[in-house]
Amino acid sequence: MSFLRRDGDDLILDCHLQPKASRDEFAGLHGERLKIRLSAPPVDGKANTMLQAFLAASFAVAKSQVQLESGLQSRQKRVRIKNPGSIPAELQALLPAPL
């Protein structure tokens, strides 16, 4: 299983979130999930909002095209990215096979 997979035109991303980090970045793998560090605190949905904006910018889509499918109050999240414009090079390098 990969942390990133296709579902029609969409991508499903399984990630492990680290809130209150010093910067926003992809940080390799955490088990079978992609580790993402975000500077936002995990209160009042701030980390989820920042995750949505970070992924929208990374995949060249609007924020409305990034939907949190599971893990609203957990570090383990599943995100749907609708019709992504691109896949970041940092993630391509981590994939076992090209998407």
Rank of each mutant, 00 (worst) to 15 (best):
Q67S: 12
H30T: 04
A89T: 08
L72A: 08
P96S: 05
Q65P: 03
H30C: 06
Q52I: 15
A57E: 14
D44A: 14
L38K: 04
L94Q: 06
R33P: 09
D14Q: 04
M50G: 07
K63C: 04
D10L: 01
K20A: 13
F54G: 12
D44M: 13
R23C: 00
Q92M: 08
G28E: 09
A57F: 03
I36P: 10
D14C: 00
E32S: 05
A60C: 06
S2H: 11
A62D: 15
A57W: 04
A60E: 13
P84C: 01
D24Y: 09
S22V: 15
S86T: 07
A21S: 14
S2N: 13
L55M: 08
D44V: 06
V43Q: 03
S74V: 00
P41G: 11
A27N: 11
P41N: 15
L38W: 08
L99P: 02
I36Q: 10
E32Q: 04
V66Q: 10
A21E: 07
A27L: 03
V66K: 07
E32I: 00
K35E: 04
G31S: 08
N83F: 04
L11K: 06
L68W: 13
S70K: 12
G71D: 14
I87P: 10
V61W: 09
F3D: 02
S2V: 10
L17E: 12
S74W: 02
L29C: 03
F59H: 02
A60M: 06
V43I: 03
L34V: 06
F3I: 06
M1E: 09
A53L: 15
L72K: 09
K63S: 09
S2C: 11
Q67T: 14
L17D: 13
F59T: 01
R80Y: 13
H30K: 14
P96K: 02
